[in-house]
Computed example of a mutant assay.
Amino acid sequence: MKRKIILGLISFLIIGLLIPQNFSVPVKDASKADFNQNSFWHYPWGKSGTHKGVDIFAKKGTDVLASTSGIVLFAGEIEIGGKVIIILGPKWRIHYYAHLDNIQASLGFISRNEKIGTVGDTGNAVGKQPHLHYAIVTLLPYLWQIDTAPQGWKKMFYLNPVTLINKDLTN
C-alpha cells in the first residue's frame, strides 16, 4: 500500500513537470517599454529587501491575463501585495499577480490568456504608478541559481519572468 502511494506521488510530480508551459505576457498589449529589464532580483527594494519579480506598468484598469493555464489557489487581498491572484501552473511553478485593481478569477482551473483581473495600485503600491507585480516561484528549487547577492539563497526558488516575457514578445 505504501509503495503504491509513493509511486502515485512520483507519477503525479513527473506529470506536473512534463506539462508544457505555453507562456504569454500577463498584461494585455504590454511591450518591452512597459517594464525594466533589470528589475528582477534588484536590491535594495522596500521591505522585501530584494525585488523578486517584474513590475509591468500600464493604465489602471488594463486587463491582466493568466500567463499560463493552471489552478487558481488564491484570489484575494494581502497587506503588501494588495489584491492578488496565485496560480499553480505547469512545471510546479506558482505565478503571483499583485497590486490588482480588481480580481475576476475564482478558485479552480483557468486557461492561459483568460482575464483574471485588471492593473491597479493596491497594497504597498498605493500612491505609485499603476502596475502589475508579476513573479514566478518554483516549488522544485533550482540550486544552480544560488548566488552571493543579498538573499541569494532564495534565488533558487524564483524564476526571472523577464526572460519569458521577452521570449513571448519576440514570437
Rank of each mutant, 00 (worst) to 15 (best):
I110H: 04
I94H: 03
N113T: 15
R112C: 02
L73A: 12
G76S: 08
G46T: 09
K59W: 04
V64R: 05
D63P: 11
I110Y: 04
L73N: 10
N113F: 07
G76N: 03
H99C: 02
I103D: 00
G70I: 02
F23V: 01
S48H: 12
S69L: 01
G76I: 05
S69N: 01
G61N: 02
V72I: 08
W45S: 15
E114M: 09
L88H: 11
K47C: 09
N36L: 12
E77H: 10
L88Y: 09
K60W: 01
L18Q: 10
K115T: 11
K59R: 14
R93P: 08
A33E: 15
G53Q: 06
F40W: 14
I86C: 05
V25S: 02
F74I: 10
G76H: 08
G82E: 04
F74H: 11
S48E: 14
G46K: 13
W41C: 12
K32P: 11
A98Y: 02
Q104G: 09
F57H: 14
T50F: 14
W92F: 09
Q104W: 10
V27H: 05
I78A: 05
S69Y: 01
D29M: 10
H99S: 09
I116F: 08
F40D: 06
I78M: 06
T62K: 05
D101T: 14
G81P: 00
Y43Q: 11
D55C: 07
T68G: 05
Q21S: 15
W41I: 08
G49N: 00
R112I: 08
S24K: 14
W41K: 14
E77D: 05
A58Q: 07
K83H: 07
A75D: 02
Y43A: 13
S111M: 14
S106M: 06
I87S: 01
I116A: 02
E77A: 09
L107T: 12
V64M: 05
D29C: 07
H95R: 13
L107P: 05
K83M: 04
F74D: 12
K28I: 12
I80V: 13
S31R: 10
A66T: 01
I110Q: 03
N22C: 12
S48Q: 11
T50P: 12
D63I: 11
S24L: 11
I94G: 00
E114H: 00
W45P: 09
G108L: 03
G108I: 00
G82D: 01
D55G: 09
E77Q: 07
K83I: 01
L100E: 06
H95L: 09
N36D: 15
V84P: 04
L65N: 06
D29G: 10
F23T: 00
F57I: 04
N102M: 05
D34P: 10
G53V: 08
G76W: 07
P90I: 06
K83C: 01
F57K: 13
A66I: 05
S31C: 05
V84H: 01
I116V: 07
Y96M: 10
